[in-house]
Design a protein around this nucleic acid. Structure first.
Lengths: 136, 136
DNA sequence: CTTTGTGCAAATTCTTTGCACCAAA
DNA sequence: TTTGGTGCAAAGAATTTGCACAAAG
């Protein structure tokens, strides 16, 4: 993974430091839309000197270079997504999990007064697990 | 306005205090998706003793009773919307303004593993004003 | 009289900033 | 040797909490 990620970052104009590669690998392998803190904690064993500042710096860099998205799914924390193709999200209000959903049709608005460069589609409710747990 | 708002709150199981009526009136007349601070500052002349805590308390109450929505449009602040019918939002990344957009229904995902009770659709980019200003 | 609402001050949490040190080109 | 990256400690900003007083039923 590391090898491909190195190339992926380089191809996108990002200098591949140990930290940046580890963070991008984290995003691409877990695909769990983590918070900055989750990335930080998840990589501490691998990079014990990692700081949260570096995670924040790196995420800002990634978003700026278009290799990550910042999601406003959860009102508390920023969450990050390494999958940058258009897709929707489902957010479980009970357990906080986030799932990817395909984005079916073209639902862009007909009004073209605006320059639209991002579309965020989020559904909120209960995931399958939480739904079942409540039914019992 | 106050009179109707009084009834609207009562009908939705919310005790209509001076503050709550003023806040709901603010949401319904401005329709500008304000932050808590904007509501607070906007009502200070009318209710000089108002506190931000009350604004936050009231918004939480409104959301809980389904008469307001909390938007995660802007990563910095929570924003509130007194229009609870399904509609999309456009957020200008330059000036921060938010516009309502109609939402053609029928974009819900086909997967029904989840219980969906909120759909958030946000477009981000440049509003007409900012677009023009940049073109010059 | 009892319950609910308000609002101050303090605490908490997430994120950013300033700065010194380290590493790579 | 110069530029860019990392990470600590402190600052900043939005929101929440604890609590006392006020208001309403």
């Amino acid at each position: 993974m590391t090898k491909q990620t190195h190339k992926y970052l380089t191809d996108n104009g990002i200098r591949p430091s140990i930290q940046r590669i580890a963070i991008m690998d984290y995003l691409l392998t877990r695909r769990n839309h983590p918070t900055a803190d989750e990335v930080y904690c998840g990589l501490l064993s691998e990079i014990p000197t990692l700081s949260k500042t570096t995670v924040y710096n790196t995420m800002k860099l990634f978003v700026h270079h278009g290799v990550a998205l910042q999601l406003d799914v959860d009102e508390k924390n920023a969450r990050f997504d390494g999958i940058v193709d258009a897709h929707a999200h489902f957010y479980c209000k009970k357990c906080g999990c986030i799932h990817d959903l395909p984005l079916e049709r073209n639902f862009l608005p007909s009004t073209m007064d605006f320059v639209i460069d991002e579309a965020h589609v989020t559904f909120k409710g209960l995931c399958a697990n939480c739904k079942q747990r409540i039914a019992n």
